[in-house]
Amino acid sequence: MSEDREFLTSGRDAGVDRRAFLRAAGRTAVGVSALALTGCYSVGLPSQPPLPDETFDYDLAYAALPDGDFTWPAINYKATDRQYWRQIVDYDSKPTGARPGSIVVDPYNRFLYWILSPKKALRYGVGVGKAGFAWAGDAEIRVKRVHPLWRPPQEMIARKPSLRQYWEEGMEPGLKNPLGARAMDLWQGNTDTLFRIHGTPEPSSIGTNASSGCIRMWHQDVIDLFERVPLRTKVTVLGAETKA
């Protein structure tokens, strides 16, 4: 298996319902035309869903999503400010030096950008937990996890001792798992930064500063991103001094 298609499954062996995923990703958009219209480069995994364009069906994109053993609930996306919906935006990558195919996380404005060209990006809304402000810098996605297990950090266990039961073996994947449908772990060299891009069972936290977690995304969005980016994708997390 080539590295760019490899991912680590920490939870159950997750067989993704491909047809359901394609519906939820909005296959009504034509990927080639979206690239042409935006002047974007061809970046990411070859099997990725089309980019959203002016005909993108948000009802379909954020509908209930069957995914192996689980069905992620539909998102009431209209209750969230439109700026946090998945969309292509103008984005000047010069200040960060981000190259096409890389990711920039702006925790202060609660956006994640997947860079498409020096002037365009696919933007997702995120929710930022306390851990999301605890680290900034450059890293790589070294682990991609489908239906991940969750182990609470020790500081959370100290606040809520009942969570200790999940420390050794982790919380099983599922609708209540804090990491949600997917997780992407960021490393610097051989060091795990403990910074994660992951799903969330709390959709109302998108666009907000949440009480815990790293960078949260709607299940449908984190799956969409997961299907686009290969391992070794560079991720830049902006600090307070470089926030947009």
Rank of each mutant, 00 (worst) to 15 (best):
N209W: 05
R159Y: 08
Y113H: 15
T71C: 12
E155C: 05
F111W: 11
I223H: 00
P46W: 03
F7H: 14
T96W: 13
D221R: 00
W187I: 04
D81A: 15
A136G: 04
A183L: 07
E155G: 04
R5K: 12
W218M: 02
A24G: 10
P152Q: 10
Y91Q: 09
D224E: 07
W218F: 11
P203H: 04
D90P: 01
L122M: 09
Y62L: 08
R5V: 06
C40P: 01
E3T: 13
Y77N: 01
G11K: 03
D138T: 15
L65D: 04
L194E: 13
Y91S: 05
N76F: 06
A64I: 07
L179G: 02
P148Y: 04
G44Y: 00
E172D: 14
P178E: 11
D53L: 03
E3H: 11
G189F: 07
W218R: 01
Q188P: 02
Y62A: 07
L22V: 06
M156K: 13
V126E: 03
S2C: 08
S42R: 12
G97A: 09
L163F: 15
F70M: 13
F56C: 02
Q83Y: 07
W72S: 01
R110Q: 14
G31D: 12
T80A: 12
R182K: 15
Q154P: 02
E140K: 13
P52S: 09
G207M: 03
R27F: 06
A210Q: 02
Q188I: 13
S212F: 09
R142A: 12
V126T: 14
D138R: 14
Q83W: 04
A181S: 15
P148R: 06
L51P: 00
A158F: 07
K234E: 11
V16E: 00
Q220T: 02
A20S: 14
K120M: 06
E172T: 11
Y108K: 08
L37S: 10
E169G: 12
T193C: 09
V16I: 14
I206S: 03
H147W: 12
Q48T: 01
G207V: 04
T208W: 03
Q220I: 00
G31T: 03
E155T: 13
S211F: 08
P178I: 07
I157V: 15
H219A: 15
Y91R: 12
V89I: 14
V43G: 01
R82V: 11
G68K: 03
G101T: 06
P148S: 08
W72M: 02
L112F: 06
I75V: 15
R110H: 15
K94G: 04
D69L: 13
I103D: 02
L51E: 00
D69W: 10
V105G: 07
L194C: 09
L163H: 09
A63G: 08
L116Q: 01
T233V: 08
L238K: 08
A36D: 08
R110M: 11
Y84Q: 03
R110V: 09
Y91I: 04
P230A: 08
